[in-house]
């Protein structure tokens, strides 16, 4: 599992962001250290960042996520001060969204480069949320009654029944569920025609804008595809364990 170092001007900001992100992580938590503030004030200390990298630095690498301008400068200088030989990537991704995406994906044992990519694109879901709904796609969505049940166990179509749709918590459960299998599962929102995105990407899943009543398609590939799709399908059918009501 990779390590994470969170660099912030404010310890309270960093602690709260990590606490918020950890709501999405169930099970083992990636090693995470915070380097924030200078002598009780707003600021960042490159030496403290370097020490944090050294503390979490295992063989799987370390991703550093920083808040504003000079936190990025300190993180850059820290790379020169660290005694660790582990691979370190400084992320240019957003702070809160990035920390959330990083913790969720890193918890599945994903490699450093993959987590770094996910964090870089962590704003996409928010941007997608604010885009106008693709009404045309909704109108043109296939009549679900005509879609035959796929006989192939590596694919599945299910309707989202939980009231909040595929929001952050269920999306994190998807990422976690698929993380344990040797499989790649593509997820498509058939109702809006959005996707496919990989089930390993929290941000990708959120960008589907999948709401209650939307029909979700799963397509798996790889040795464990059938088991992985089965696990995700069960989550959909169970409404992610959330209180459900009939789709209206």
């Amino acid at each position: 599992m990779i390590g994470l170092v969170i660099v912030s001007h404010s310890p309270r900001l960093a602690e709260a962001a990590v606490e918020l992100a950890l709501q999405m992580v169930h099970g083992s938590v990636p090693p995470t250290r915070i380097a924030a503030g200078v002598e009780g004030r707003f600021g960042t200390d490159a030496a403290a960042v370097a020490a944090a990298i050294d503390e979490v630095g295992g063989s799987d690498g370390v991703l550093v996520i920083a808040d504003l301008g000079s936190a990025v400068l300190s993180a850059g200088l820290a790379l020169e001060l660290t005694g660790s030989s582990t691979e370190v990537i400084l992320s240019g991704g957003p702070f809160v969204e990035g920390i959330t995406a990083a913790l969720v994906l890193a918890a599945t044992g994903a490699p450093l480069a993959e987590v770094a990519r996910e964090v870089s694109s962590a704003l996409d879901a928010k941007a997608a949320q604010l885009e106008p709904l693709p009404e045309a796609a909704v109108a043109a969505a296939p009549d679900t009654s005509d879609v035959p049940d796929a006989p192939d166990p590596r694919s599945a179509d299910e309707v989202l029944i939980n009231p909040e749709g595929l929001h952050a918590r269920p999306a994190a459960m998807f990422v976690q569920a698929v993380g344990g299998y040797d499989a790649v599962v593509d997820v498509t929102n058939l109702t809006t025609g959005t996707g496919p995105v990989t089930a390993k990407s929290l941000i990708g899943l959120l960008s589907l804008g999948a709401k209650q009543g939307h029909r979700i398609r799963l397509d798996g590939q790889g040795p464990d595809a059938a088991t992985a799709v089965g696990a995700l399908r069960r989550l959909l059918v169970d409404g992610f364990g959330e209180a459900t009501s009939a789709p209206g």
């Binding site: 001007h9 503030g37 200078v38 002598e39 960042t44 400068l73 300190s74 200088l77």
Partner: peptide, 21 residues
Amino acid sequence: GMALVSTVGGASGSLYGTLFL
């Protein structure tokens, strides 16, 4: 340089620190 890095905070700490280091 290390004293400045660890006490100034913000961009000035990293930049003055870098100058001396």
